[in-house]
Simulated assay, not measured.
Amino acid sequence: MAADFWAGYISGAIGIIIGNPLDVVKVRLQAGDSHSNAPSTQLTRFERANSLIRGAAAPILGYGALNAILFVAYNRTLTALDGPVTDPTNPVGVSPYSIWLAGAAGGLASWTVSSPTEFIKCRAQLDRRPEVSSWAVAKDIIRTRGWRGLYFGGAITSARDSIGYGFYFWSYELCKRYMTSNDESSHQAALKVLLCGGIAGVVTWASVFPLDMIKTRLQAQTIADHSPRATEAQSLLRPQGQTLNSFQIAKETYRAEGIKAFYRGLGVCSVRAFIVNAVQWAAYEWLMKSFTKSLGSEVKTQEPMTAA
């Protein structure tokens, strides 16, 4: 299988392992009311220490696959738009516009994995019952909503992913180009990848955070019937048991809590995004170079010897 598939898969899994604890805080801040806007408030509600890894199983498996599809689709779309790229980790000469489009295409392609993974993760992180796991949540969704229920909130998830990943690749490549120098050492190159990866993560989440907040509250509605300690947002967004759509959630949230509600948790998310994406991009580029070098060596050893 292609080098970018495995590089994307492994780096994606690494990113989830590192970033899941802060992601739990981010999701609970998004789903909470205007009085629960401090990470310390959310942390005191964790039933056990394992709450910090709540919902990690689905993302570790799913996000690895998502990241693999994302990078494969991105690289193939970039090739279709601008011709063959000699080094996928350094697309010199490719326009920023093409990079954004390729990133958006990659985000759409990864939707088949990201939508159910996000729904399961969100439900697992918001459910206060200590016995709830990703697997239990997945089985409950399938039992109550069928297999199609795994894609609840899929439309806003696909919009978030398409826009977000467009800015993800665009900001990363633009940052690398601005920081490139002719005489940089290997140490400087590694630091550049870490810094640019971190910046790309922050830019991405800043560009789509309101959409992510709406997605979280949309999916949080489905937990109300299964947990006596549902999140505070339930009472706000589900009057008389009504299930609201994305537009209604945005309207009701703005009416009740103002514009700040759409960015609640962005600080925690930005810290997480910088750390996770710095490591993830560094892992991806290192794996790509290692796999490409390994594949190149195999090709050379398999070439038939010619007579002198």
Score class of each variant (00 low, 15 high):
67 N>D: 13
111 W>I: 00
18 I>T: 11
87 D>T: 14
88 P>S: 07
76 R>Y: 07
177 R>P: 00
20 N>K: 12
90 N>I: 00
201 G>Q: 00
121 K>A: 13
198 G>F: 08
232 E>V: 03
178 Y>N: 10
64 G>D: 11
243 T>H: 14
145 R>I: 02
21 P>L: 04
296 G>C: 07
298 E>H: 05
140 D>F: 02
102 A>L: 02
242 Q>M: 12
282 A>K: 13
173 E>M: 14
254 Y>V: 11
241 G>S: 13
266 L>D: 03
229 R>N: 10
20 N>I: 13
243 T>V: 12
46 F>C: 13
132 V>E: 01
28 R>P: 09
291 F>K: 04
91 P>H: 10
197 G>H: 11
190 A>R: 08
46 F>S: 12
191 L>A: 09
167 F>C: 08
298 E>F: 06
170 W>V: 00
197 G>F: 09
288 M>C: 09
84 P>W: 07
24 V>M: 08
103 G>H: 11
304 P>E: 12
170 W>G: 02
68 A>Y: 02
266 L>S: 10
184 E>T: 15
298 E>N: 08
47 E>D: 10
83 G>L: 06
163 I>H: 03
139 K>N: 12
177 R>G: 06
284 Y>R: 09
285 E>Q: 15
292 T>S: 12
279 V>R: 01
254 Y>C: 03
199 I>W: 10
60 I>Y: 04
21 P>C: 04
174 L>D: 11
75 N>E: 15
253 T>W: 02
138 A>Y: 13
274 F>S: 02
144 T>E: 12
206 A>F: 10
71 F>C: 08
58 A>W: 05
43 L>M: 15
69 I>W: 00
170 W>N: 10
198 G>M: 05
86 T>Q: 15
221 Q>W: 05
263 Y>D: 01
221 Q>P: 08
7 A>M: 04
8 G>P: 01
103 G>S: 10
94 V>D: 07
221 Q>S: 06
1 M>K: 10
187 H>N: 11
217 R>L: 08
252 E>H: 08
203 V>F: 03
196 C>K: 04
39 P>D: 06
156 I>M: 06
70 L>I: 06
63 Y>P: 01
66 L>S: 08
235 S>P: 00
266 L>A: 12
138 A>K: 11
121 K>L: 09
267 G>V: 07
141 I>P: 04
5 F>D: 01
36 S>I: 03
